[in-house]
Design a protein around this nucleic acid. Sequence first.
DNA 1: CTTCAATATTCCTCCCGAGTTATATGCGCG
DNA 2: CGCGCATATAACTCGGGAGGAATATTGAAG
Lengths: 113, 113
Amino acid sequence: MLDAALWTALADPHRRAMVALLLERPRSVGEIVEACGLSQPSTSKHLKVLREAGLVRVRQDAQRRVYALDPGPIAALDAWLAPYRALWNKSLDALGRRLDETPDAPEPPAAKD
Amino acid sequence: MLDAALWTALADPHRRAMVALLLERPRSVGEIVEACGLSQPSTSKHLKVLREAGLVRVRQDAQRRVYALDPGPIAALDAWLAPYRALWNKSLDALGRRLDETPDAPEPPAAKD
DNA sequence: CTTCAATATTCCTCCCGAGTTATATGCGCG
DNA sequence: CGCGCATATAACTCGGGAGGAATATTGAAG
């Protein structure tokens, strides 16, 4: 189960914030530090976790390291989610299929679509 | 940020296994205990976490408690994922758009669109 | 080669989450 | 009404993850 690291990485709200931040555009560590309000070492550690989960990639630009999002692992998350999508489609479908189990409602003719 | 509990719940591999188990069909606690190989109290605690994250619902059947998956939170996860979907679609698109950044390739005339 | 800026790493502390054992609750049955 | 089964909760221990301070590393510039 390789994506255990992926779930662990995304379990932390600060790391999710970083990922959301990197969705807009790649950023240097300094920018991320300032945006997240964390200390620099803590930020670097979080970035390391994201890196090892494969969620981000680093490009070295002079002294700066620019982090960018890697879409692969998030696509894997989407794939994990796939089997459940059928489930909630079905439940929405059942909702739309009218709740005729109401014992005292005499079938209101509201055909709202 | 209500879905912090959701991420926390799904961060644990045992709980993900339980969720996957409940995707097939609702199960009693005893079944889940046996399937996951955990002790009964530990299983109950995990189920409590899933319950408080809204991921599962309980139906009481005599002494047994039958747990079933609730599609709502997973749909929320899907919604969270939505902004990233564009990202990896774009990256796949870029792959298909041919990697013409190869320095020695003299601009192949493949105008594929 | 020295120095400075940007980032990573180490060490330490603390809290939270997971597991186990023991116990409580609730329900059906005789 | 007391017993046994299924599940939940409490009390406790333990390991890991998160945060901060201090330090190491790397690259650019002079």
